[in-house]
Simulated assay, not measured.
Amino acid sequence: MNRKFTFFSRFIPDILAGRKTITIRDDSESWPKPGELLEVHTFEDDRWFCQLRVLEISPLALADFKEEHAQQENMSLPELRQVIADIYPGQDAFWLIRFEVTAQ
């Protein structure tokens, strides 16, 4: 089954170029399963821009964010911590979803 998933528009270039290969989400978006295909839309205007295959999903605490995660997000570790704090204020338990683009 193909289900819908969203990203902020600013991440589109990095996702499509393969520079962003993970996303960090809270419990409300922990439903994807490995192997599942996701139809990906922009958060702002619900515009389709690609299809992803979920490769892996695993729990990840804020305290356990590493430079490797930042590189997979195509940003520095301080930037990653700030982005996550802005999107999910006050939260410290997340899900790491590793993916690959299958169509664009």
Results as ranks from 00 to 15, higher is better:
residue 50 C to T: 13
residue 50 C to Y: 08
residue 44 E to S: 13
residue 91 Q to N: 04
residue 9 S to W: 07
residue 102 T to Q: 13
residue 102 T to M: 12
residue 18 G to C: 08
residue 24 I to P: 10
residue 31 W to R: 06
residue 76 S to F: 03
residue 20 K to M: 07
residue 51 Q to R: 15
residue 33 K to G: 03
residue 64 D to Y: 01
residue 76 S to D: 05
residue 32 P to W: 01
residue 45 D to I: 05
residue 38 L to R: 00
residue 91 Q to L: 12
residue 14 D to T: 07
residue 29 E to D: 05
residue 92 D to Q: 06
residue 15 I to P: 02
residue 13 P to S: 08
residue 99 F to A: 00
residue 60 L to W: 01
residue 48 W to P: 13
residue 40 V to A: 08
residue 9 S to T: 06
residue 102 T to D: 08
residue 70 A to K: 15
residue 4 K to N: 15
residue 104 Q to M: 11
residue 85 A to H: 06
residue 72 Q to N: 14
residue 86 D to A: 09
residue 36 E to K: 00
residue 69 H to D: 13
residue 68 E to L: 04
residue 85 A to E: 06
residue 82 Q to F: 02
residue 45 D to H: 15
residue 48 W to S: 06
residue 14 D to M: 12
residue 56 E to G: 02
residue 82 Q to S: 06
residue 72 Q to C: 09
residue 23 T to K: 06
residue 92 D to V: 00
residue 61 A to S: 07
residue 24 I to W: 07
residue 79 E to H: 04
residue 49 F to T: 10
residue 37 L to S: 11
residue 103 A to D: 15
residue 7 F to M: 14
residue 21 T to Q: 09
residue 60 L to A: 07
residue 97 I to W: 02
residue 50 C to I: 12
residue 76 S to A: 10
residue 87 I to C: 04
residue 14 D to F: 05
residue 10 R to G: 04
residue 92 D to R: 03
residue 57 I to C: 00
residue 6 T to P: 00
residue 71 Q to G: 00
residue 22 I to L: 09
residue 25 R to Q: 14
residue 66 K to L: 10
residue 92 D to S: 10
residue 11 F to N: 02
residue 91 Q to I: 06
residue 65 F to G: 02
residue 51 Q to S: 14
residue 21 T to N: 13
residue 39 E to R: 13
residue 81 R to T: 08
residue 12 I to L: 09
residue 58 S to P: 00
residue 5 F to W: 15
residue 31 W to E: 08
residue 58 S to N: 01
residue 77 L to S: 09
residue 70 A to C: 09
residue 98 R to A: 14
residue 4 K to H: 04
residue 84 I to V: 12
residue 96 L to A: 06
residue 83 V to N: 06
residue 20 K to V: 13
residue 59 P to C: 05
residue 70 A to G: 14
residue 38 L to M: 04
residue 60 L to S: 05
residue 98 R to Y: 03
residue 1 M to V: 11
residue 17 A to D: 10
residue 35 G to K: 00
residue 27 D to K: 15
residue 59 P to S: 07
residue 92 D to T: 11
residue 78 P to F: 07
residue 42 T to H: 08
residue 75 M to P: 10
residue 95 W to R: 05
residue 79 E to Q: 15
residue 37 L to W: 03
residue 16 L to H: 07
residue 43 F to H: 11
residue 55 L to N: 12
residue 57 I to F: 01
residue 23 T to L: 02
residue 34 P to M: 01
residue 12 I to W: 11
residue 24 I to D: 09
residue 77 L to G: 09
residue 3 R to Y: 13
residue 78 P to D: 07
